[in-house]
Design a protein around this nucleic acid. Sequence first.
DNA 1: AAGTTTATGAAAATGATTATCATTTTAAGA
DNA 2: TCTTAAAATGATAATCATTTTCATAAACTT
Lengths: 146, 146
Amino acid sequence: MEKAKAVFNEFIASKNLRMTPQRSLILDIFLRKKGHLTAEQLYDMVKRKDPSVGQATVYRMLKLLSESGIAREVDFGDGVLRYEHLYGREHHDHLICTRCNKEVEVVDEEIERLQERLAKRHGFVLTGHRMYLYGICKECRNNVGE
Amino acid sequence: MEKAKAVFNEFIASKNLRMTPQRSLILDIFLRKKGHLTAEQLYDMVKRKDPSVGQATVYRMLKLLSESGIAREVDFGDGVLRYEHLYGREHHDHLICTRCNKEVEVVDEEIERLQERLAKRHGFVLTGHRMYLYGICKECRNNVGE
DNA sequence: AAGTTTATGAAAATGATTATCATTTTAAGA
DNA sequence: TCTTAAAATGATAATCATTTTCATAAACTT
Ligand SMILES: [Mn+2]
Ligand SMILES: [Mn+2]
Ligand SMILES: [Zn+2]
Ligand SMILES: [Zn+2]
């Protein structure tokens, strides 16, 4: 939390950018919340603390957070980008229930390894990947009637 | 090709929809082209054959093609949906060069298997997945200067 | 052929994100 | 502290792919 703030401050300094009350507020709120949240959701929370902050500033800040390694953009494929904590977290992929939209964070070291191998086999050096698994969770399978 | 057309015709009939010259033309052109093409690209090709066709019809048709299992929506994450042949093709994922945008179609049975296992481990029954591997291809690694 | 349903094309609407721009802040210097 | 150049902000307009709307034109049914 404090560590993440320090990292962001360093990033800001290294790019000759400036720390402002707006950025500080947005960063605070972002770090406090966990999960995957959209720019709109974050904007709503920011507005509650300071209604004068514009949404463009939130969008701009999310870009900076991503660049600095504090946040990561997540695209579930529904037309809205979400952001999650990246700093201090392990890499993971997502398992999504298409019925109740539950999102489970998952990792499979074996899959990660095989992805590298697969890319290499085609002459590529992997720089990243996006993997989303879609399915029906146990709860949804039980509540078939409703 | 003819088989695919028949499948689409059946789909149209089963839904009490109608086959029209526009749909037929769009289907023909789509089936003739391979690769991953956008609605805009398909629209351009259709226009060349019949300038009177509207782009809304192309978008509508792509929806139908996807529903009927003839086409599959592919989202490389650049803000534009692409469509590829699905009927008569094997499942595959994509390996994309972030420098030259080369797209390689890949499959790794082992990964597919592990995805199932991973989902099951979390109580999910997998219905699908999206996996995109991003990296730098061999050619791009050689042409570093240009 | 008449009636009913579905399809079409043009144009407007949508919705998330980005760009613009006039104004305000910030960080350094003098 | 005053000055100034660079960067940030917020309101608003612009983008851009996709979807809707709606009046008109097919397509099927009887
Ligand atoms: Mn996550
Ligand atoms: Mn493909
Ligand atoms: Zn569920
Ligand atoms: Zn390349």
